[in-house]
Amino acid sequence: MKATILEVFNTIIENRGNKKLESISPEMHLKYDIGFDSLDLAELTVRIEADYDIDIFEDGIVNTVGEILKKLEKK
């Protein structure tokens, strides 16, 4: 699952024309460590929803990679 999420992250990063990530870890902050802004996070929501049919922002803000993984594992 982590690998798929990394792929999703890199799609967004590439769309921005930035350098791809080699790996992600649960404690990484989406905004401060990965550099996502609010529109990137919207794109992230949509791409994860397309893969997993779950809206990660539906019940509040998600800050870290770990929080995303937890939501997806719950499903």
Partner: peptide, 9 residues
């Protein structure tokens, strides 16, 4: 609609 546009660039 916006979500779909984002998903497909």
């Amino acid at each position: 609609v916006l979500r779909q546009m984002l998903l497909h660039n």
